[in-house]
Simulated scan of single mutants.
Amino acid sequence: MKELTTDRLWLRRFTSDDSDFIFDMYSRWEVQRFIGLTPRLMTERVEADERTARYAAVEHPVHGIWAITDKSTGQRLGVLLLKPLPASGSETQPGPSCEIEIGWHLHPDAWGQGYTSEGAEAVLAHAFATGLNRVLAVTNKNNVASQAVARRIGMTRTGTTADFYNTECELFSIERE
């Protein structure tokens, strides 16, 4: 997985040292409320360790799960994802689709400072430079903050869909120029 940088950010691979941050971020309702079919708080440290290990294990030339880090201070800010988008299916677990999604989860202490847009633009540039032609984003219909980020990074809302994650969501798209 390629590390990326912007003026203010270092998007890097997760390490076991990130578990405390992961636990802190995903144990907050304001972060979790729009994630997943049935949002729930992370309540056990072992969950953070397992998630951090999963994030750290991503090894792909295009896809990635990056720790968003302030370049000057080293402060952890959130997570940026570029990964296959699960298609809705008849089972409780969505199956694979042919689409790639960009997504983000930011710690509330980092909200409102443009970090998500800045990091997401770098991830999109990486996606298109490595050959992807289109990237999608899906958001909970009530997550207006994430929808605003999608628009700020040049994505276009294409409607409401139930094609992904076995739920209805707002769909955004951007294509390589």
Rank of each mutant, 00 (worst) to 15 (best):
K2A: 14
E3D: 14
T5K: 10
R13S: 14
F14Q: 07
S16D: 02
D17W: 06
S19I: 00
D20Q: 09
F23Y: 02
F23W: 00
Y26I: 00
Y26S: 04
E30H: 10
E30W: 13
R33Q: 15
I35T: 10
G36Y: 09
P39Y: 15
T43R: 00
T43V: 01
E44H: 03
E44Q: 02
V46C: 02
V46M: 00
R51K: 14
T52N: 05
T52Y: 04
R54V: 04
V58F: 04
P61I: 01
P61K: 01
V62N: 13
H63T: 12
G64S: 02
A67H: 06
I68S: 02
I68W: 00
T69K: 03
K71T: 01
K71S: 00
G74H: 05
Q75K: 15
L77N: 11
L77Q: 11
L77H: 09
G78T: 07
G78H: 03
L81H: 05
K83R: 14
P84W: 11
P84F: 03
P84L: 06
A87G: 12
S88I: 07
G89L: 07
G89S: 15
S90G: 09
E91G: 02
T92Q: 04
T92C: 03
P94V: 05
G95Q: 12
S97V: 09
C98S: 13
E101K: 03
H105T: 12
H105Y: 13
H105N: 15
H107K: 07
P108N: 09
D109C: 02
A110M: 10
Q113T: 04
G114S: 03
G114E: 01
Y115V: 02
Y115H: 07
E118C: 03
E121T: 02
A122N: 04
L124G: 02
F128K: 12
F128C: 10
A129Y: 00
L132T: 08
L132A: 08
R134K: 12
V135R: 11
V135K: 10
V135M: 11
L136S: 09
L136Y: 09
T139L: 12
T139C: 15
N143L: 06
V144T: 14
A145P: 06
A145H: 07
S146Y: 05
V149W: 01
V149D: 13
A150N: 04
I153R: 08
M155R: 11
M155E: 08
M155V: 10
M155Q: 10
R157S: 15
T160Q: 13
T160A: 13
A162S: 15
A162G: 15
D163H: 09
N166E: 10
T167Q: 07
E168N: 08
E168W: 05
E168C: 07
C169T: 11
L171A: 15
S173L: 03
I174L: 11
I174D: 02
E175V: 05
R176G: 03
